[in-house]
Each structure stands twice: as structure tokens, then as C-alpha cells.
């Protein structure tokens, strides 16, 4: 199965919301690629400059409750449009997490202590990468010769969504249209 990630950027914040990931003023776009320049434009993080800090970035590592707030899937699309297909965090808001898997992208939840340890060991260093191998269930975070391998477990449904390429692909094969006559 697939790998996700690459050059990684640490975002030292809890509760990064989807308004910060893609502000509502850009929700007038109907095509995903159009969101590309605006990713994390409103992120409240000291010294963070999205254009500089996200150049070449392929993975994000953040703290608790990533993606809270609005249901806008534009947040996941803006990440993907910038080549970011992996977000590692100490927790995700439900809708954002589901949007990621529904798009065939990986939202990887790790215990807060693990995230803490990654921040301590790697954050702020140049050339950090984070690559998740879904088949082996291993996240490898590297900086030069320094590597930390972290095992992770995905549920069978999340795996199936990643394998299918998303929920639309998965559901289209599996379900008939449910036209209901009666209310429950």
C-alpha cells in the first residue's frame, strides 16, 4: 500500500481550526486547485509565514484537535493542492479527520507524549521528513542520520478508504441508492 508524507513542518499549536487552514473568504472557489495559494494564511503562530514555511512541505505535525471548527473540506483540498497528504497530530476534529480519509489522505493520530517527543527531538531543524508507510504501519521521522520509527494502527475502514482512494470510490462500488419510502 501507499506511503504518505515527505518534507515535514512542525506547527506548535493545539486547536488549529479550518478557518485558519483555509479562510472563508476563499470559499467562493469551486475548484480545489484554486485554493493552493491560501493554505494556512490565517494561522495564528508566532513567526509563521505560510509562503516561506510551507514551500516544498509534504507533511504537517501538530498537536491536539487539529482541524476543528467548520466542516469545509476545502481544508483537506488546500493541503492536497500543496502536496501535503499527511497530517500527524495528537488528535483531530471528527469532520476534518473524516474529510482527509474521504479524500484518500492520511490523518494520523498519535498519543500526545509521542507528539511531544517528536517536537522536542526534531522541531525547528532543517531537513526533517515524516513518511508514513500504511502497509507496515510505521511512521518514520528523520533528520540527517537521526531517525525515529513509530508504529501506528489504522482501523480497517480507514485502510479501505485509503486503498480505494476515498469514500466516493469506496461507496460507489458498495452501496445501491437508498431511496426510502417510509420515515423511521
Amino acid at each position: 500500500m501507499k506511503t504518505f508524507g515527505g518534507a515535514a513542518r512542525f506547527l506548535d499549536r493545539d486547536d488549529i481550526n479550518t478557518d485558519e487552514i483555509i479562510p472563508a473568504r476563499y470559499l467562493t472557489e469551486v475548484e480545489r486547485e484554486a485554493l493552493k495559494p491560501y493554505l494556512l494564511e490565517d494561522l495564528r503562530l508566532e513567526g509563521f509565514d505560510p509562503r516561506r514555511d510551507l514551500a516544498g512541505c509534504e507533511a504537517l505535525i501538530a498537536r491536539a484537535n487539529f482541524g476543528c471548527g467548520s466542516s469545509r473540506e476545502h481544508a483537506a483540498w488546500a493541503l492536497e493542492a500543496n502536496g501535503i497528504r499527511l497530517v500527524v497530530a495528537a488528535g483531530f476534529a471528527r469532520i476534518f479527520r473524516q474529510n482527509m480519509f474521504n479524500c484518500g489522505l492520511l490523518a494520523l493520530e498519535l498519543p500526545a507524549e509521542r507528539i511531544d517527543a517528536l517536537f522536542r527531538r526534531f522541531a525547528g531543524q532543517p531537513g526533517v521528513s515524516a513518511v508514513a508507510d500504511v502497509a507496515s504501519g510505521t511512521l518514520a521521522v528523520r533528520c540527517g542520520g537521526d531517525t525515529e520509527r513509530i508504529p501506528f494502527a489504522l482501523g480497517p475502514f480507514e485502510r479501505a478508504l485509503l486503498e480505494a482512494g476515498g469514500w466516493l470510490e469506496y461507496a460507489d462500488r458498495r452501496y445501491e441508492s437508498r431511496r426510502r419510502k417510509e420515515s423511521p
Binding site: 473540506e73 473524516q98 474521504n102 445501491e176
Partner: peptide
Amino acid sequence: TPGVGTTDLAVALLKGVCA
């Protein structure tokens, strides 16, 4: 009555189901 993203919405419009 949960809020969902656009892909969940697309499947809901097409199939009438959600996970």
C-alpha cells in the same frame, strides 16, 4: 444531524447513506 464534508455530502446525495 451531524455536519459533514463535501465528499460525505456527495455520497449522501448519490446514495442516501453516510458512515
